[in-house]
Amino acid sequence: MFGKGAASLPFLVKKERQMIMFKKRARKIYSLIFVLPTLAAFIIGFVYPFFNGIYLSFCKFKTTSNATFVGFDNYIQAFQNEGFLRSFWFTALFVVVSVILINLIAFFVAYVLTLGIRGSNVFRTIFFMPNLVGGIILGYIWQLIFNGILQNFGSNIELDATYGFWGLVILMCWQQAGYMMIIYIAGFQSVPADLYEAARIDGAGKKQVLTSVTLPMMMPSITICTFLTLTNSFKLFDQNLALTNGAPGVVSSSGTMVYQTEMMALNIYKTFYANQNSRGVGQAEGVIFFVLVVVIALAQLYFTRRKEVQQ
C-alpha cells in the first residue's frame, strides 16, 4: 500500500503530499511504540541482569540487592578452585565427543530419511520427539536405564566417571540428534537437483558428489548444527544434574571433594551455594564461562562460515 502511494507521489497536490509525509512519520512513531514491549522485556530480562551480573562478580554478596565491592578477589578464587578447572577439562572433552557424534548421527539419519523410503515422515517425527522432553526428566529416565543395566555388574552410573561420561554422551546424542536431523533434512532438500545432474554428466562418482556437491552446498546447515550442538553441550546443566550430579568425586589434598563428571554450569551452580562467601566466586565463574562460550562459538562460526558457498 505504501509503495503504491510513493510511486504516485509526483502527481499529488501539495496538501496530499504533506499528508503522506505525516503518515510516514507517524509510522515511525508507531513502530517505536510497538517495539517498546519487547524492548522493555529485553532490557528487564536480559540487559539489566547481564550487566548487574558482571558487576556482582566483583562483589561479595548474599542477596543481589546487598553487595559490597571486593575487586578481583572472586576471580582469583575462581581460578584456584580445583573443581572449576577440572570441570573445564571434562566439559571440553564432552563437547568434542558429543559435537562430532551428534552431527555424524544427525547427518546420517537425515541422509537416509531423504532417500524417499516409505514412512520417512513417521521416522522423522519419532527421531525428533526426544527433543520435546525436558532435560531433568530425560536425565532421570536415562539414569534408571543405565543403572538397570549397570547393577547387573555391581556398579552404578554415579560410581564410575567413565560410565558417567558416556552416559551423558548417549543421552545428549539421543536428545539432540533429532533436532539437528531436521536442519540437515532441510539442507539436503535445498540442494538443487540440477547440480547433481550436472555432476553426474561430468562423470562424478558417489564420493565426489558427496564431497564436491552435497557437503559444500550443505555448509550453512553444518554451521548452524555445529553452533547449536557446541553451545548446547557447553552449557549443559539439567541433564548433568539429573544423571550424575557430578558424582563420583575424588578427595583432593585439601580435603575438598572434586567431582569427576561435573560440567562447568553445574560447578558454577554448586560453587554459588557452597558457603556464605562463595556467591561472588560462583558469579565470577559464570562470567568466565560466558566469555569462554562466546569466544569458542564465534571462532567456530568464523571457521565454518568460511567454507560456505554462494548458491
Partner: peptide, 22 residues
C-alpha cells in the same frame, strides 16, 4: 558443620566407600 559443601563431600565419600569404589 562448616558448610553444605562439606556435608556433600563427606556424603560422596561415604557413597563410594559403601559401594567399594572408594
Amino acid at each position: 558443620m562448616p558448610s553444605e559443601n562439606w556435608k556433600n563431600g563427606v556424603g560422596t565419600a561415604l557413597t563410594q566407600y559403601a559401594a567399594g569404589t572408594g
